[in-house]
């Protein structure tokens, strides 16, 4: 992005702003996948920073939405299937697979993604799904940790995440010391970074629905991750998206899995409470 922040002043919103708002009036029109309804708009509780909580789904064209609404056309399912295979494949010195302890993922993993990040008492910090999977691998299976953005990790987070699809995002920020991570994430959200001197809030709170050159800004919700992006032509993690945003505003991006990004993920999950988990979503 070569333009100056001045573009926000001229930020153009499409007629679609009115078209999508129409969904509000008719909640019976919820998008659904194989009968599972997706709540793509949620009422914001009092004192929430947004007037209404809206999934990134609503900011995309009907063609992109159609890819997500059919599990066969959704290319994210190539990785979901590989995650399903890995689930029952034994690995590591303990000779165990995920299935050895957790059984049927459809049962045991239901709701897991919706509650992430989750306070981990032993570690004394919030765990993202990636953190939890790697802890299982190193502590229970005696296997090597996966890299954050590896196909193996994306496949497993997508497969586990899918088991919560349609369930509302609901994180427990009262547990342990979650509040201090939430605070840290909130500070991050409103702090300007980089040569373009932008905070998350400048685009995703003050200008969602508007266009930044040709891209339509969403609220930057995290309910669809890991997500298949048309631009990437593959699945990617939430932290990859964070890094992409930071690169664009010409900031030095934090590392995937860093405390900064885990704090931001914690705060963002809270901002999106009530939206359905859409993993694996399809975005532009």
């Amino acid at each position: 992005m070569r333009n100056l922040p001045g573009i926000f002043v001229a930020g153009a919103a499409a007629t679609a702003i009115l078209a999508t708002s129409g969904v509000l009036a008719d909640q019976s029109n919820l998008p659904s996948i194989d009968g599972v309804e997706l709540k793509t708009r949620a009422e914001a509780p009092k004192d929430h920073p947004l007037p209404e909580i809206i999934s990134g789904f609503e900011f995309r064209t009907k063609e992109t939405q159609a890819l997500e609404l059919d599990d066969f056309t959704n290319p994210g399912f190539l990785l979901v299937e590989s995650g399903e295979e890995t689930w029952s494949t034994a690995e590591g010195s303990a000779g165990k697979s995920c299935e050895s302890c957790h059984g049927d993922a459809a049962e045991s993993m239901k709701g897991v993604r919706a509650a992430m990040p989750k306070w981990n008492e032993a570690a004394g910090r919030p765990f993202t799904l990636e953190n939890q999977i790697n802890e299982c691998r190193t502590e229970q299976m005696g296997a090597d940790a996966w890299k954050w953005e590896s196909d193996d990790m994306l496949a497993m987070t997508a497969y586990v995440g899918l088991q919560s699809r349609g369930m509302p995002v609901d994180v427990d920020i009262e547990a342990g010391d979650m509040m201090s991570w939430w605070e840290k994430g909130k500070d991050f959200y409103y702090t300007r970074f980089g040569q373009l001197d932008l905070a998350c809030a400048n685009c995703h709170e003050a200008n969602y629905g508007n266009y930044i050159r040709a891209d339509r800004l969403s609220q930057g919700q995290s309910n669809g991750f890991p997500t298949y992006r048309l631009k990437w032509q593959k699945m990617g993690s939430l932290h990859r998206r964070f890094k992409g945003c930071m690169d664009n505003i010409r900031a030095e991006a934090f590392k995937r899995g860093s405390d900064e990004f885990v704090a931001l993920e914690t705060y963002l999950a809270w901002r999106g409470e009530g939206l359905s988990v859409e993993t694996p979503a399809v975005r532009n």
């Binding site: 992005m1 040709a214 891209d215 800004l217 992409g244 690169d247």
Partner: peptide, 8 residues
Amino acid sequence: VTIGGCGG
């Protein structure tokens, strides 16, 4: 084809 402002 829209050339992105900020595709990330």
